[in-house]
């Protein structure tokens, strides 16, 4: 059986762990994350209006996978680690289903697994995991023998970060939500460009979410908790990296028209103003039409600023 699981979703730890589960429980399942190159024209999605590019990309990947798989997994991601995802993720399976229903041929009949993912604690995690696995592999599926693997421990992540930065004497904090930083298309090649200039890169994903969450909590008050998980990741990473890693520069990579980033950007700029040591910071807005040359020019200028500061 071929199962589609859009690559964009793999930026979430929880989905990567689910993938490991599927491999362990049903080795016969072939998971597809990226649509195979095909001569057939990619299906044209429903009007996407002015949706952000990451979301459009996610919907397009799901649609392109549909004709190539027997089932498509697009969970309804509402909450992870006790914090909400942006409203787009709530509608993601519905938009994929509406698009699927308009496809010609057998792709229109491909079942969509859209289990509700609303996870605050380990109990939720186990329950949702089993629900999803049963929806995909059949109601008889036994619970996996091993408990759901917890996220890598903070110690493990710290060691991995140390390894990653070995050989670099300067680092840049690249702050952004997991799929912005991790997806080669969405990150516009920034990590590779920075590495080629001799900079090690620290991202929010190099830390345990609970550490970032704690750091982000410093800006919460009463009902005014920053409720999006991705926003907490960025706010927490800013505070944590600035305090612990003394980066030479900070780049906030965001997506044009992202409602979450729009507000986080305001808070990050405010936090940046209050930093005791003036670390240069740049905001890079990526959209569907960003051209690589523009990004390179912006980065070159930014690195010149950093060089100016470090050599003066």
């Amino acid at each position: 059986m071929k199962v589609g699981l859009p690559m964009e979703l793999l930026s979430f730890d929880w989905i990567r762990r689910l993938k490991e589960d599927i491999h362990a429980l049903a080795p016969q399942v072939e998971l597809c994350h990226v649509p195979a190159a095909t001569s057939a024209r990619r299906p044209v999605p429903l009007s996407e209006g002015d949706a952000c590019f990451p979301f459009k990309k996610m919907v397009r990947t799901a649609m392109a996978l549909l004709p190539q798989v027997d089932r498509l997994v697009v969970p309804r991601l509402v909450r992870l680690d006790g914090h909400l995802l942006c409203p787009n993720f709530r509608a993601f399976p519905d938009l994929v289903a509406l698009n699927r229903d308009r496809l010609p041929g057998p792709a229109r009949k491909i079942p969509i697994i859209d289990t509700l993912v609303d996870i605050t604690d380990a109990g939720d995690e186990e329950r949702v995991r089993l629900l999803l696995l049963r929806a995909l592999l059949g109601p008889e599926t036994a619970p996996p023998a091993a408990p759901f693997p917890r996220p890598q421990s903070a110690g493990h992540k710290a060691a991995a970060l140390q390894d990653k930065l070995r050989g670099y004497d300067r680092t840049i904090a690249l702050i952004g939500r997991a799929y912005m930083v991790g997806d080669a298309h969405l990150n516009m090649g920034i990590p590779a460009i920075l590495a080629s200039q001799g900079y090690g890169i620290v991202t929010p994903q190099d830390f345990d979410f609970s550490d970032l969450d704690r750091a982000a909590a410093r800006d919460d008050y009463y009902a005014k908790t920053m409720y999006w998980r991705g926003a907490r990741e960025c706010l927490g990473a800013f505070r944590h990296i600035c305090a612990e890693h003394e980066p030479a520069g900070i780049i906030y990579l965001l997506s044009f028209n992202c409602g979450v980033d729009a507000l986080v950007r305001i808070e990050l700029m405010s936090l940046h103003k209050k930093l005791a040591n003036k670390i240069p910071m740049m905001v890079l807005v990526g959209d569907e039409h960003s051209q690589q040359e523009h990004v390179v020019t912006r980065l070159e200028a930014f690195l010149d600023v950093i060089d100016g500061i470090t050599t003066s």
């Binding site: 009007s47 002015d50 509608a91 409602g259």
Partner: peptide, 16 residues
């Protein structure tokens, strides 16, 4: 409003 997350989704649905 341009960039409104829930209503951009609604607009896609309304188009069907």
């Amino acid at each position: 409003p341009f960039s409104c997350m829930p209503e951009t989704t609604a607009a896609s649905v309304l188009s069907t």
